[in-house]
């Protein structure tokens, strides 16, 4: 039988405690135990980025972190970022630019984009493309995503001035 460990996390600001199988990765934990199905699993070997979430403020691959490793840490998912309004401008830009089609990569893509927006506010178009290179989108061809991120880079820069 699976070895389970009591695990407590702060997920989207809410404390949750579960007995978690050691082998369960964070994405499955969020999806199956908490019903937070916004983070997707599409490869489970760390390549596609669809499972990207934030742990203690840094983006990570949800499929490459065990839920038990996240014990005691703060996890933010797309649902949390949506409800807090933190990425409302980014979501709006994605919507306006049609920077998503099937939407399966979108939560992870938004996580990666928000990470860039906060860590490299002066990023160039090329740097946007580089930063998003860990997230596979099979639908858009990326250009609309890059355009949307550039829009928000610009609007946030203007907002700060």
């Amino acid at each position: 039988m699976d070895d389970t460990l009591p695990t407590t996390l702060i997920v989207n600001g809410e404390r949750v405690t579960r007995n978690v199988a050691a082998r369960q990765h964070l994405s499955d934990f969020l999806r199956d135990e908490l019903g937070l199905t916004g983070s997707h699993t599409a490869c489970e070997h760390g390549v596609c980025g669809a499972c990207t979430v934030r742990v203690d403020g840094a983006i990570v691959r949800g499929c490459l972190m065990l839920a038990v490793q996240a014990n005691g840490r703060k996890v933010d998912t797309i649902e949390g970022l949506s409800d807090s309004g933190e990425i409302a401008d980014l979501q709006e830009a994605f919507h306006r630019r049609n920077a998503l089609q099937c939407g399966f990569c979108t939560p992870g893509m938004l996580m990666a984009a928000q990470d860039l927006l906060t860590s490299q506010p002066e990023a160039t178009r090329e740097e946007v493309r580089e930063h998003l290179s860990g997230n596979l989108c099979r639908c858009t061809g990326y250009q609309a995503i890059v355009d949307a991120v550039e829009d928000v880079l610009g609007s946030r820069r203007r907002g700060r001035k």
Binding site: R31, S82, G103, T106, P107
Partner: peptide, 21 residues
Amino acid sequence: VPRPNARRLLQGRGAYVDDLR
């Protein structure tokens, strides 16, 4: 015009088969 159904996908609130309980 932007597509209305994109909003749920942007919030991770779509319903793909694996999301159903």
